[in-house]
Design a protein around this nucleic acid. Structure first.
Length: 505
RNA sequence: GGGUCGUUAACUCAGUCGGUAGAGUAUCUGACUUUUAAUCAGAGAGUCGCGCGUUCAAGUCGCGCACGACCCA
């Protein structure tokens, strides 16, 4: 014990002292009948220093966040899941013995109180406790009540502490839950059915990314954590489920950044007999209405930038974007050789087999993406970079595909689906032939997917929306780690469980 | 992978030219029965991220490492 920090040692002593007074430290018999949010409005009916007429008895439970002690009386700010309420403890009412146990309370303890309501002379509704209980004794001190917890590493590693002391963090994750609920509701109302497809796949398909590899012992085979659910969802279209969606984790074995976490949440949805234009309309309506529901306005601020999500949103073809936003002359865009030359001139490294489609896409990423602050759909993506999208009827070099950009970031990607098994097979084969030196990316031929298409997949359109990025946008979060409860970090050095000889129960 | 910055008490942070480690909050003791960043008086609390080096002397200078943040690839 002597090796620990002082506070931890002192609290353990207090815990022992309480135990000697006959107070149990970790009970599960107290069930609060009320919560802060429910009681607080009752204060509107009271004048300062007035007790609630009728003297109804309420009970609450929560964590002590602050204490103001006066020798023979005290105020405690207690937080439960719904909010905060103050309890008032008085020697006269509780009696010597109980008040003595209260003196061993600490900030951070989870306690229960039973009592009546009154308003203090400064006008704060308070529960005057007639009974108090210790529900769970806290052994570690909470961060500074005024400055809070600002060390981001601790906020990510010990999210539980962050959630206790940072209201903004609680708010962000409540919003996240609400956003996902609204997405689900939006699609369900339109007769989409929510499904679950494999997270472990023998062939990681549906995107180009490095997968995580794992091994199934009983089957004696390698499996990959999915990089996308796309090919399974489209198998369901073949099966006759005409509108499906999945909100779940994808895994990509790549770098971490403020926009990338190795596991992230993706919405994918597929609608039979629809085109990418239908999905553009759906996306615009869904995201703008969710923003309105969550933020009370379609005009928001993201990291100091004004963003207006009021529909209709801008729609530009990739060529139009390159012309209007990047100022690349139409004559250059129309000439494959000039496009390739321009890309090289801008320092873009193109693989030997890369064509003008790849070059345009790279130029777009370099010169246009960052500048698309208000929502913008970019359409007519080159076929070369869209292995799963349907070719445009009039121009087979581009696909019926779009991506959505907001605050310079890709938020959604959708297209009319390729359902011709012959075209799909040849594009898979090209993808495999073009595989670079990178052994970690495995474009493998998913023969079963081709077989599924051979049974006939209805015409359809499908889309993926990055949920984490959507939540970042709508909660004004600068980093993806701020919208993921437990983001990935390297293990903490030197962390061991405290195994004090008498610390356990 | 590269660059920049950071790591000092439980939390938030100071620490000058290299010369005994500081504050506020929290904690502990005492006073205080309507406070709310309660107040007043007193006290305790440090592996200065880790290691090596330079020096009579290192939180401070140098090198390496760990972890984190941001930027770049």
């Amino acid at each position: 014990m002597s090796e620990e920090n002082q506070t931890l040692a002192q609290r353990k002593e207090k815990a022992e002292a309480l135990a000697e007074l006959g107070v149990k430290l970790y009970i599960n018999s107290f069930k609060p009948a009320n919560c802060a949010r429910e009681l607080l409005p009752k204060g509107d009916l009271l004048q300062p220093q007035q007790a609630e007429p009728g003297g109804a008895v309420y009970s609450i439970a929560g964590r002590v966040l602050a204490m103001r002690k006066f020798g023979k009386a005290a105020f405690c700010t207690v937080a439960d899941g719904s909010g905060q309420i103050q309890i008032y403890l008085k020697l006269d009412i509780l009696g010597e013995a109980v008040f003595e146990t209260f003196k061993k309370w600490d900030i951070g303890d989870i306690v229960g109180a039973v009592g009546t309501l009154f308003k203090t002379k400064v006008g704060e509704l308070s529960l005057q406790a007639s009974e108090i209980v210790m529900i769970s004794k806290s052994l570690r001190p909470l961060p500074d009540k005024w400055h809070g917890l600002s060390d981001v590493e601790t906020r990510y590693r010990q999210r539980y502490v962050d959630l206790i002391v940072t209201p903004e963090t609680r708010e962000t994750f409540r919003k996240r839950v609400e956003i996902i609920r609204l997405v689900r509701e939006h699609l369900t109302r339109r007769n989409f059915m929510e499904v679950e497809t494999p997270m472990m796949q023998p062939i990681p398909g549906g995107a180009t990314a490095k997968p995580f590899k794992t091994h199934h012992n009983a089957l004696g085979m390698d499996l990959y954590l999915r990089i996308a659910p796309e090919l399974y969802l489209k198998r369901l279209l073949v099966g006759g489920f005409e509108r499906v969606f999945e909100i779940n984790r994808n895994f990509r074995n790549e770098g971490l950044s403020t926009r990338h976490n190795p596991e992230f949440t993706m919405l994918e949805f597929y609608q039979a007999y629809a085109t990418y234009e239908d999905l553009i309309a759906l996306t615009e309506e869904m995201i703008s209405s969710i923003c309105l529901a969550v933020n009370g306005s379609m005009k928001i601020t993201y990291q100091g930038q004004e963003v207006d999500l009021t529909p209709p949103w801008t729609k530009l073809t990739m060529d139009e974007a390159l012309l209007q936003v990047a100022g690349i002359p139409a004559a250059v865009l129309a000439d494959d050789a000039q496009v390739m030359a321009l890309a090289r001139e801008k320092g873009i490294k193109l693989e030997e087999n890369a064509g003008p489609g790849k070059a345009k896409t790279e130029l777009f990423e370099l010169l246009v993406e960052d500048r698309l602050i208000n929502p913008t759909f970019i359409t007519r993506y080159p076929t070369e970079v869209s292995p799963l999208a349907r070719r445009n009827e009039n121009d087979p070099s581009v696909t019926d595909r779009f991506e959505l950009f907001i605050t310079g970031r890709e938020l959604a990607n959708g297209f009319s689906e390729l359902n011709d098994p012959r075209d799909q097979l040849s594009r898979f084969e090209k993808q495999i032939a073009d595989r670079g030196d990178d052994d970690e990316i495995h474009p493998e031929l998913d023969a079963d997917y081709i077989r599924a298409l051979e049974y006939g997949m209805p015409s359809a359109a499908g889309e993926g929306i990055g949920i984490d990025r959507l939540v970042m946008l709508l909660t004004d979060a600068p980093s993806i780690r701020d919208v993921i409860l437990f983001p990935h970090l390297k293990p903490e050095a030197g962390l061991t469980a405290d195994r004090d000889e008498d610390g356990g129960q």
